[in-house]
Amino acid sequence: MGRLRLFLPLCGFLLLVVMLWLGFSLNDPHILPSALLQKPFPGFELPSLQDAEKTLTQEDLKGKILLVNVWATWCPTCKAEHAELMRLKEQFGLEIAGVVYKDEPDNARRWLAAYGDPYIYNIIDRDGRLGIDLGVYGAPESFLLNAEGKILYKRVGEVNARIWRDEIRPRLEQLEYFDLDQQR
């Protein structure tokens, strides 16, 4: 007993830490739910922003490495992210498909005209149904797809220089994306 008793506060503290750790890993929305990882992008049939007549499906996402970016004009962080997406397009030729999430197509068109368009095309997800299938809980979110249309990586929140450097770029390097790029 004696001195051992003095370790009681430490034991209580360690218990708390275990709980925080568990709660923390349970609550982490940035970690992709394992259900979606390495799975094909969910099916959809939605209009294109650029060409109202055209309907886009999951098949359109196949054939090349692609970053799918869920965004909206009502989302302030998207504005901050937009500049980074422009940079990725200009500097690395990254192909980005947009999902206009719960937004008016007219707003989206105006936004792209005003700030520049980093997307190869945009999918209009007006009622957020595709968002639900993707497990989107807010904009912006981004998904990295391989040429088969499988989801390799998901980012909840903005893609910034750090995320590009630490998360996306290494994955692209693994896919030898940049080697191909140089040959082009």
């Binding site: 929305p29 299938d133 809980y137 807010g138 904009a139």
Partner: peptide
């Protein structure tokens, strides 16, 4: 409906629907 906030209960709802 902040871009960074949603009640945690609803976040999980989205997740469960994926599977």
């Amino acid at each position: 409906h902040d871009e960074n906030y949603m009640p945690p209960e609803l976040i999980d709802m989205g997740k469960n629907n994926d599977s």
